[in-house]
Design a protein around this nucleic acid. Sequence first.
RNA 1: CGGAGUGUAGCGCAGCCUGGUAGCGCACCUGCUUUGGGAGCAGGGGGUCGAAGGUUCGAAUCCUUUCACUCCGACCA
Length: 571
Amino acid sequence: MRFSRLLIPTSKEVPSDAVLPSHIYLLRAGYIQSVGAGLYNFLPLGKRVLDRVRAVVKEELDRAGCQEVDLAFVTPAELWRESGRFEKYGKELLRFKDRKENEFVLGPTHEEMMVNLVRQSVKSYKQLPLHLYQIKTKFRDEIRPRFGLMRGREFLMEDGYSFHKDEEDMKREFDHMEAIYSRIFTRLGLDFRVVEADSGAIGGSGSKEFMVLAESGEDTLVVCDGCDYGANIEAATRAPKEGPRYEEGEEPVMSPGEFHTPGTTTIEALAEFFRLDPHHLVKAVAKKALYDEGREEIVLFFIRGNDELEETKACNAAGANELTEVTEEELRAAGLTPGYMGFEGLPEGIHYYIDRELRGEANLIMGANKEEYHRVGVQVPDLSERFADLVAVQEGDRCARCGGTLRYTKGIEVGHIFQLGTRYSEPLGATFLDENGKARPFVMGTYGIGVSRLLAAIIEQHHDERGCIWTRESAPFAVEIIVSNVKKEEEREAGERLYRQLLEAGVEVLLDDRTERFGPKMSDFELMGIPYGVVVGKKLAEGTVELITRDGMVREDRSLEEIVPVLLERV
RNA sequence: CGGAGUGUAGCGCAGCCUGGUAGCGCACCUGCUUUGGGAGCAGGGGGUCGAAGGUUCGAAUCCUUUCACUCCGACCA
């Protein structure tokens, strides 16, 4: 295509609200245009990249035996009520009514729709397994959209759903999709890691996330330097934390009892007061848990003094939709004693959970539920239903698998696969007849790739101070021919000739035939990030052109005869 | 949802305090010159100043209401 005819509104100005390289460059290079909070238009260049990325996803999925479908974007609210997610999904669901006052939502994900489709058309185990997917716009009314394509409200997502006769076959497909997704991200040139994850609002048992490693990622990952363990902080586990080492006979031993501890409402103050490592102290974290139909209650979480509460884990333990902050006044109103709370002697009816690493521990200090008093020599009773994994893995903790050291790193979530089980098929009454003619709910898996987010992820990982650097399978064009001065007949003609040759060879090529000077053309080339550039200019007199590899801006002179074969070899 | 801030030409901004003909840079159009790193000169087009109401002889400017957007936090496949 000809640059002079393409709508590529590049800009020198850095958009004031953009901070991430991907956001800045995609806007400046004319890939996308902002239209509102979390809403973007894809301009010709952006659309080309989107189509290429989408094509890679489609090609791999089709080859893996998945079937593409396209479901309605507007979905009846009734389906969401059936699955129980109308409430649980919360404010992210954009709801509205049609002229007949029927309620609808814009699809943020399509489990309900897909189960509905399958329950109407699949009746026998002979039709299983079945994997259907679509690549479609989704809408989630995010609380705070930001970072351009990274977290938009409207975005393009590949969502796949597999249906199986049993757990075992579902797990087979889950592993299969892990391999397929890995192929997709590898083809797109991404450095990523597959990590264990929390299942969030989608539900289900096991889930894994595909994380593109980048400083600007919004997710914190825990990785092991000794093995290939990796997990989202929300789901990461560790070997039980070891306490401080003491000399023989130096370990703290306390006889049970209450102790007057004025002014020790924080762990630091308490550790100071007893001259003890916080490892021996029990921290109480209070949260307000929100449930369906607006029900809310105060829940307490007890963890070690040197640990931090991991909210997602805590939320799962409490079975709540959401946890929010609770004020000191609310705590007192519930009969609690902020700063001095412990799990013994709590008022009736207060729900609490204890971190599983505290099970069986003794010689602890914890609040006595009495102003200015702590209990010492506490032994944790075996209340099996109270224990849960509640704490955030910290840097330096030990790996549960190999004992190696755990570290944090940042990642961009570009894919997520779930072992769903019967989470949706059961409430929606989606069943098939097995070999014995018995009705059983489908066992499901669900899989998602953030296609538009991938554009941002690719740029986050592949850019320099001048602009984008697209990878081979994501680039809007493979080659850009830069005619240095189109008013020079010989340069223009040589450029045109090269352009025709590459087109005939089937190369996606962009010809910069604008009357601009050399400077702006080079800057635009660098900003847009097309992998290869060919400068037709000065050196034409010697029968050579300049081949530029965008990644690293490596320049080499090539004769007019060899330039086409050389390019064909590389793209 | 809490805190802060911004809405003036396509983009980035000044003007507002102290009311009196709506400006600057970039971009755009025309002409000439220039052409290997975001050119120069000359001329030109474009804005119901986010919206509604009020005060006033007169409102971008003061007052009230409202909408939108952004940032920080909480939150979030």
